[in-house]
């Protein structure tokens, strides 16, 4: 019984972390068809922003939920203006340019913070369930993922800004004719996507020993989750994170964590082979 509860929490946690990892990339890819391979480094910088802020005496939750998204969002803004802006509509070129950016940021952070592991302790203590110990922070991650999904859904569906953004993504010329500047909208969307990446990186900062190359651990998972999710933003993210999270946890508990990771990747290959347009390319068409 206790074990069943632990496994349930771990599964929810795996799904939630995939949602968090993928969210920033999903906004940028789902809305703008830009694949940001520097996404992992955005997360890494979110983590560094959090740790730096905490070391400067900022409350850890403020650092995670406010400072990190703002800092990374601003970095994203600069990147969009300098690089991405010139490459809209050239999918492969943006991938290559952002891959270059990811290497650039790894180098930059290595020069600033050094090639050493930094970290902070988790702000929420763990507790025992029967014979097992559960990390209390896992619940925070699950809650953060739920809040994030609902937030994105609400912004896109109910606010005017969300409506304008969706309109501009579908027909930028029409949005321009109605008096909205697509250039500005793309800029704002990229800012939001980067901020979400920063937030995710910040949430994971207390769980991992952060090194400048930490981003590499995220990018593949984020990339796979988003591409396998397909065109719809929220539904795609939720469905693919659900599939991959559960598959990887089943294999993790049954065999070993490494096999769990490998199972996730194999599941991704199989899923893409069967549904080349992603899960929401076949099901839930036209949803958000």
């Amino acid at each position: 019984m206790d074990l069943a509860f632990v496994i349930l929490v771990e599964m929810l946690y795996a799904v939630a972390s995939l949602i968090l990892i993928g969210a920033g990339l999903a906004v940028v890819f789902g809305m703008m068809k830009v694949i940001n391979l520097a996404h992992g480094e955005f997360m890494m910088m979110g983590g560094y922003a959090t740790i730096t802020a905490v070391n400067l005496g900022v409350n850890i939750f403020v650092a995670m939920l406010v400072v990190a998204p703002l800092v990374v969002g601003l970095i994203g803004l600069v990147v969009e203006r300098l690089v991405i802006r010139h490459l809209y509509g050239r999918l492969v070129d943006t991938m290559l340019a952002t891959w270059g950016l990811s290497l650039f940021f790894i180098g930059l952070v290595t020069m600033i913070f050094g090639n050493t592991t930094t970290g902070i302790s988790t702000p929420i203590p763990g507790f025992a369930v029967g014979d097992y110990q559960i990390n209390g922070y896992n619940f925070f991650v699950i809650l953060a993922a739920i809040a994030l999904l609902i937030g994105v859904l609400l912004v896109l569906r109910t606010t005017r800004a969300g409506l304008v953004a969706r309109g501009a993504m579908q027909r930028s010329d029409m949005a321009a004719a109605l008096g909205y500047s697509p250039d500005r909208i793309y800029m704002a969307t990229f800012f939001c996507g980067s901020a979400l990446s920063g937030l995710a990186g910040a949430v994971f900062a207390p769980l991992v020993g952060l090194v400048p190359t930490s981003g590499g651990a995220y990018i593949a998972k984020a990339f796979i989750t988003v591409i396998a999710g397909g065109p719809s933003l929220v539904a795609g993210l939720l469905s693919s994170a659900g599939v991959f999270g559960i598959v990887s946890q089943i294999f993790t508990f049954a065999i070993s964590p490494v096999i769990g990771e490998v199972a996730l990747l194999v599941a991704a290959v199989i899923l893409l082979r069967i549904m080349p347009q992603g899960i929401t390319g076949r099901f839930f068409k036209g949803r958000l």
């Binding site: 290559l96 891959w99 270059g100 950016l101 290497l103 650039f104 790894i106 180098g107 930059l108 020069m111």
Partner: peptide, 15 residues
């Protein structure tokens, strides 16, 4: 840093 230069080269060439 070495990686920084490699990344910069890639970005500049793509652009």
């Amino acid at each position: 840093d070495n990686t920084l230069i490699t990344g910069l080269i890639l970005v500049l060439f793509v652009l």
